[in-house]
Amino acid sequence: MAQVLSWSPGSSSILEVEQIPPAYRGVWAPNKEACADPVWQIRMMPHGYDTYDVGGRLKRITQEGSERTVLALFEMEGEATIWDAFFKMRISEDGNSLTVEDLSDPGEIDYVRC
């Protein structure tokens, strides 16, 4: 069952602008070996992210609980389809690992910084 998220009226993003925080930006992959292959890479940028076959344009972002966890709403595009996706993203204290949970499809994926 999909989790329903609602943004609280008046809630704001972490930086008062809709941008992915600097600590989350960069190139990520499932493991260090995958960093060498663009097919496995995720490129996280200020206003969205790109993978080999799908891209997401950031629509909304807000802090969730801890200072290292955010909820983000992306407009996704890939395979001739456009859809919205909610993600919970948690970065490690050292900034070298990222856990991403697709809230419409339960389960987490861990990434390492390339």
Results as ranks from 00 to 15, higher is better:
Ile42Ser: 14
Pro46Lys: 06
Ile61Phe: 03
Asp50Lys: 01
Leu58Lys: 09
Arg57Asp: 12
Val39Cys: 08
Ala72Phe: 04
Met44Ile: 15
Trp40Cys: 09
Trp40Leu: 13
Pro46Ser: 15
Gln63Gly: 12
Phe74Tyr: 15
Ile42Leu: 14
Leu73Met: 11
Ser66Cys: 09
Gly65His: 01
Lys32Val: 15
Gln41Ile: 08
Phe74Asp: 11
Thr51Leu: 04
Asp53Leu: 05
Val70His: 02
Met76Trp: 01
Asp37Met: 06
Gly56Ser: 09
Glu75Met: 09
Lys59Asn: 06
Trp40Gln: 12
Leu73His: 06
Arg68Cys: 04
Ile61Gln: 09
Glu33Arg: 14
Gly55Ile: 00
Tyr52Pro: 02
Asp53Ile: 02
Glu77Ile: 02
Gly55Glu: 07
Trp40Glu: 13
Glu33Asp: 15
Glu75Asn: 10
Val54Gly: 02
Cys35Pro: 08
Gly65Cys: 03
Ala36Met: 10
Asp53Trp: 00
Leu71Lys: 15
Glu64Met: 11
Met45Trp: 02
Met45Thr: 14
Phe74Gln: 04
Glu33Lys: 12
Lys32Cys: 08
Asp37Asn: 13
Pro38Val: 08
Ala34Phe: 13
Pro46Cys: 06
Glu64Pro: 01
Trp40Thr: 09
Met45Ile: 10
Val70Pro: 03
Ala36Asn: 14
Asp37Ile: 06
Asp37Arg: 07
Val54Asn: 12
Glu67Ala: 15
Thr62Arg: 08
Arg43Glu: 14
Trp40Tyr: 15
Val54Met: 06
Ser66Ile: 10
Cys35Ala: 07
Pro46Leu: 09
Glu64Asn: 08
Pro38Lys: 07
Lys32His: 09
Glu75Arg: 09
Cys35Lys: 06
Arg68Trp: 03
Pro46Glu: 15
Gln63Arg: 13
Gly55Ser: 07
Ala34Tyr: 07
Arg60Gly: 01
Thr69Asn: 06
Arg57Asn: 07
Asp37Leu: 06
Cys35Asp: 08
Pro46His: 10
Asp50Met: 01
Val54Tyr: 08
Gly48Thr: 06
Leu73Gly: 03
Val54His: 09
Gln63Leu: 11
Ala34Trp: 02
Glu77Phe: 04
Arg68Ile: 05
Val39Met: 06
Tyr49Val: 03
Glu67Asp: 14
Gln41Leu: 05
Gly65Arg: 00
Ile42Gly: 03
Glu75Val: 01
Ile42Pro: 00
Ser66Asp: 14
Pro38Gly: 13
Trp40Lys: 11
Lys32Leu: 13
Glu67Trp: 09
Met76Ile: 02
Gly55Pro: 00
Met45Ala: 15
Asp50Trp: 00
Lys32Trp: 02
Gly48Asn: 10
Arg68Gln: 13
Gln41Lys: 13
Ala34Thr: 05
Gly48Glu: 05
Thr69Arg: 09
Tyr52Ala: 14
Asp50Tyr: 01
Leu58His: 06
Ile61Asn: 03
Arg57Glu: 13
Asp37Pro: 03
Thr69His: 03
Ala72Met: 04
Cys35Leu: 11
Arg68His: 09
Tyr49Glu: 09
Arg60Cys: 00
